[in-house]
Amino acid sequence: MQSSTLLAMAGLLCFPLSALAVDDSSGNTSGNVLTVGAGVAAGSPYAGDDRTRVMPLIVLDYSMANGFFASTMRGLGYGSQAGAFSYSAALGYRGERADHKRSGLRGLAGSDYLKGMGKVEGNASALLSLGYSPLPGVQLSVAGDIPLNHRENGATLQLGASGQVYSRNDSRGMPQDTVSLGLQTSWGEKKYLQTMYGVTAAQAARTAFRQYTPKGGFYEAQASVSWGHRIDARWRVNTVLGVERRLGDAANSPVVQRKSAPMGAVYVTYSY
Rank of each mutant, 00 (worst) to 15 (best):
residue 43 G to R: 08
residue 43 G to N: 06
residue 44 S to I: 07
residue 44 S to D: 15
residue 45 P to L: 08
residue 47 A to P: 07
residue 48 G to I: 07
residue 48 G to A: 05
residue 49 D to K: 06
residue 50 D to H: 09
residue 52 T to K: 11
residue 54 V to H: 04
residue 54 V to E: 04
residue 57 L to I: 12
residue 62 Y to W: 11
residue 63 S to G: 05
residue 65 A to M: 02
residue 65 A to K: 11
residue 68 F to I: 08
residue 69 F to E: 02
residue 70 A to L: 15
residue 73 M to H: 09
residue 73 M to N: 09
residue 75 G to K: 01
residue 75 G to A: 10
residue 76 L to P: 10
residue 78 Y to C: 11
residue 79 G to M: 01
residue 79 G to F: 04
residue 84 A to F: 06
residue 85 F to L: 01
residue 87 Y to N: 00
residue 88 S to Y: 11
residue 93 Y to T: 01
residue 93 Y to H: 08
residue 95 G to E: 14
residue 96 E to M: 13
residue 98 A to S: 10
residue 98 A to I: 10
residue 99 D to V: 03
residue 99 D to M: 02
residue 100 H to W: 07
residue 101 K to E: 14
residue 102 R to T: 14
residue 104 G to T: 10
residue 104 G to P: 04
residue 106 R to L: 11
residue 109 A to Q: 15
residue 110 G to Y: 13
residue 110 G to P: 04
residue 110 G to R: 12
residue 113 Y to G: 02
residue 113 Y to D: 10
residue 113 Y to N: 12
residue 115 K to G: 10
residue 115 K to Q: 11
residue 116 G to T: 04
residue 117 M to D: 02
residue 119 K to R: 13
residue 121 E to T: 01
residue 122 G to R: 01
residue 125 S to P: 05
residue 127 L to R: 09
residue 129 S to R: 08
residue 130 L to F: 03
residue 132 Y to T: 05
residue 132 Y to F: 08
residue 134 P to A: 06
residue 136 P to T: 07
residue 137 G to P: 04
residue 138 V to E: 14
residue 139 Q to T: 14
residue 143 A to P: 05
residue 145 D to I: 03
residue 145 D to A: 00
residue 147 P to G: 02
residue 148 L to I: 13
residue 149 N to C: 00
residue 152 E to Q: 04
residue 152 E to G: 09
residue 153 N to W: 11
residue 153 N to D: 04
residue 154 G to V: 04
residue 154 G to W: 01
residue 155 A to T: 00
residue 156 T to Y: 00
residue 162 S to I: 08
residue 162 S to E: 13
residue 163 G to W: 10
residue 166 Y to S: 03
residue 167 S to T: 06
residue 167 S to H: 00
